[in-house]
Nucleic acid binder design. Structure first.
Lengths: 233, 233
DNA sequence: GGGCGAATATTTATCAGACCACTTGGCGCT
DNA sequence: AGCGCCAAGTGGTCTGATAAATATTCGCCC
């Protein structure tokens, strides 16, 4: 039959697949600029509207980046770019899935913290301490949350697996944490959180991966258990 | 009028955020049908083209589903819907990130297998065995891969964490596995793979979580190590 | 009266063309 | 040579129309 344009799915869907294929096969290098929307539409034999929808789809996936007036570029395809949508999942999840996400986070966070205990550099450790102190020096929940996020982010990056760090970033995204925290911290968990953070820091300083893993697992596990209780109650 | 959204970012970007907010705040329930494209465009004061791009964006994220001739619906917001894009990440990753993804998979897969050892039902265990036997009964790589995927998927689902299963599904997506497998299996790893699968199955039957965790970690770790060696060589 | 099929209405999918907003690079002026 | 302005190029948005798939309604036949 017709091997150039088989009739499957929607026109836009095909365009998305073709663009993905171009990048997947290496015909488009990271950072490279694509032809214009108009040219691409002509090449694939579709209208500019449909082409734009396909481009928009790949843009939200973090594969492409459109710069107004300049052109369309392939991103560096780094973990952070591609896993941005992960945060959306966290934001839209409720109830049971929230617990499941926390369970995933517990598994990854404990592993990342264990790896960090073995690999963290002096500079990174200093950063961790900076956020730890800043977190303990204020009572503003907004600021505490901010440093808490940075505390864990620094550790995740020190683990040396950017992909894992990017996933954890999504699982700790601002609105996600804020939603869970609102209730959790109301029950006076500040002090316990401080102790848990201190224990994690201790394990990092001692370069003890197993202690770090246990401390991180317990830290996330606390929130997880609270969340689980909220659902039952 | 509407003084809440004066001038930030692109029109389409704003529409995406507004739609996300509607769903996030629960103003749109899962499965519910949205107003028509035209109505939505009018409500938000934008053109239908822009509205369509916003809808397309949320469609690829797995949040919305458009049915030709019928309308636009909110998905059930299940893990599988939302984490579909995870497979795209795996497909577009190369080199170092491929190893990082395998590391993530090793961590999650071993945890899921350990959980499954404790929770798997008789029916599910029978399914696992079915795929294990089918995998050993053929020499067709395509069929082996297919049953291998089903083997691990069944175990992940038995772990009882749908979110984790969905992520693992993405990390094991067909093209991802196929790419890695092509080289790996050429080195005659079939026999070793069989032994590893058998060990995992054994641990499940014995309901021994720690043995299951170790077996799964070793299984993925084998591929991971091979991949790492490929990069250096 | 009830079931069933065709006509009709609704809605998404796609296309075409125009104009606006922003970026970039070159051209001319100082 | 340096600076500033302008024009071409490009993504962003809008309008309106047509096709295709689905949902609804109505009329016909039994």
């Amino acid at each position: 039959m017709d091997q150039t344009a088989p009739q499957k799915g929607t026109v836009t869907g095909r365009a998305i697949e073709q663009l993905k294929a171009m990048i997947g096969e290496g015909r488009l290098e990271p950072g490279e600029r694509l032809p214009t929307e108009r040219d691409l539409a002509t090449q694939l034999g579709i209208s500019r509207s449909s082409m734009r929808e396909a481009i928009r789809a790949l843009t939200v996936m973090g594969v492409l980046e459109a710069r107004h007036g300049s052109g369309i570029y392939v991103t560096q395809l780094e973990a952070g770019d591609l896993l941005e949508t992960f945060g959306v999942v966290a934001d839209l999840s409720r109830g049971r899935r929230l617990v499941e996400l926390l369970e995933v986070r517990r598994v990854l966070e404990s592993t990342a913290t264990a790896l960090a205990a073995a690999r963290i550099s002096a500079d990174q450790l200093a950063d961790v301490e900076k956020h730890l102190e800043a977190m303990n020096a204020t009572e503003d929940p907004e600021e505490i949350l901010s440093h808490d996020l940075a505390f864990h982010r620094t550790i995740a990056l020190a683990a040396g697996n950017d992909t894992m760090a990017a996933i954890l970033e999504g699982l700790s995204s601002r609105t996600f944490r804020a939603r869970v925290w609102r209730g959790y911290q109301e029950e006076g968990a500040f002090e316990r959180t401080r102790r848990e953070h201190a224990r994690i820091h201790c394990a990092l300083v001692a370069r003890d991966p197993e202690a770090a893993r246990a401390a991180a697992a317990a830290h996330v596990g606390e929130v997880e258990e609270w969340m689980r209780a909220q659902l039952d109650g």
